[in-house]
Design a protein around this nucleic acid. Structure first.
Lengths: 239, 239
DNA sequence: CGTAGGCTTGATTGAACTCAACAAGTGTGG
DNA sequence: CCACACTTGTTGAGTTCAATCAAGCCTACG
């Protein structure tokens, strides 16, 4: 059930059987949500953190004029709000971008882990730090990259992150969100996203259609996006 | 010496004398850097984390075309790369935006803290999570706010963060960086930043001149920026 | 006192936005 | 079963915000 999460952690460091058991022990229940559902609201007080088992979950923030910015896209195996364990309320909301299944990890039990399992605590800390690294890369996209580069970069990032948990093939993966939601990730309007997707298609780089990302020229796409996966910290390094 | 840092932590939670001593014990030396110096390079392996004692430090990422994006501005009392403790190398560089003094905290000693001081570990974890929250707010600025709102929001954010550590007055604070560096924070060109600053001045909201931010109408500025300091997590909450 | 870096302004260009219309697909209820 | 609403995607025309290009102005300093 939390295999995806463990697989990701084990790319970086060893997780003992005892640690695995402790992590499993934090899970108190499993819930499914339809696409479009807000899973955790802005400012809500938290007693649980949300581990994505299946589907895509987004973090977003609203603006007064009704616009919103998605600040992070979570894939299966990600904790969507492990930071909520220390923050206790979120500065953003969590949204089911697709139908999804999530497990809820009790903060009480996470607290016990921090009291007794120093190594596992560092691993969890590490995991939130990678999230922050992804936020930084998105800042670079939003601040400095052109619309087409932003889209290309996101497709590359998700390919790597989904690959780690066995949810991507060599040249394609499922990513069933609308162009409007893609626009909210990229800081663009839906209309412009549509044009950008057409250009990516016409340049023979990648096709995004019917919730499927299909690469035609992955090296070319990475070159366009200046994609370097180093910020995802997937190399082994004991904590 | 690390009083600013402690003051900030104590807004959120109690820090015992023993914890304070442990934190002080991590510091192995103090270094000063001239403005413009890169303190930690991209990808560099780390054995120390950087605590800002005085001056401003930026996190930035370079692009191939020579542009760069500053993803975070650190004020005195901030750890600029506490996340480096778990990441072990940085996905960004650290830059002295002004002349600055930093203390270096040994990762070996931070490791000891994580082995023996669960509460203090949670506090440090919390501290990196607030950094991530600031990254998210910047994503919203870069993705969705107009140029003038972005500038206004940054001035508001720094006012609060500097206030916490006693580096801001009610209506003004020192922030001696160039318009070009401001542009790198805001995802704009230096020329446009210049025009935006003029407009903020002419609209009677804020003046930025000679390294000084002087508010003329702080409520108006906050309204323009839609500034809500909740994402800084400055309210008390025991960990 | 000459030069470089930072600031300022004007003119022009361009990337992305806005507004508007329409097509295709989906679901629903009469 | 069809009419209708609704969502999502597509395209065109016109606009706007910020970028680019270019020039001139300080003032700090070697």
């Amino acid at each position: 059930m939390i295999e995806c999460h463990l697989r990701k952690l084990r790319l970086r460091d060893e997780i003992s059987a005892a640690e695995e058991a402790a992590l499993r022990g934090t899970i108190v229940d499993t819930v499914t949500h339809p696409a479009g559902r807000t899973i955790v609201h802005f400012g809500e007080a938290l007693n649980y953190s949300t581990l994505v088992l299946d589907g895509f979950v987004g973090r977003y923030k609203d603006l007064k004029n009704g616009q919103r910015q998605i600040t992070h896209v979570h894939v299966p195996g990600d904790f969507a709000d492990l930071h909520g364990f220390t923050l206790k309320r979120l500065d953003h909301a969590l949204l089911a971008l697709t139908p999804c299944t999530i497990a809820r990890a009790s903060h009480t039990r996470l607290h016990e882990i921090t009291e007794t399992q120093a190594h596992l605590t560092r691993v969890m800390w590490f995991s939130t730090n990678v999230d922050a690294a992804i936020h930084r890369e998105w800042e670079v996209s939003l601040g400095r990259r052109s619309a087409i580069q932003r889209a290309a970069h996101l497709f590359c990032e998700l390919h790597v992150r989904l690959g780690v948990v066995g949810h991507a093939e060599a040249e394609r993966y499922r990513f069933p969100i609308s162009q409007a939601e893609l626009a909210e990730c990229l800081g663009l309007t839906p209309v412009h996203v549509n044009r950008v997707l057409r250009e990516l298609r016409e340049r023979g780089l990648v096709e995004f259609r019917n919730g499927l990302v299909a690469f035609q020229d992955l090296p070319g796409l990475k070159r366009l996006a200046e994609f370097d996966p180093g910020y995802l910290y997937l190399d082994p390094h004991p904590l």
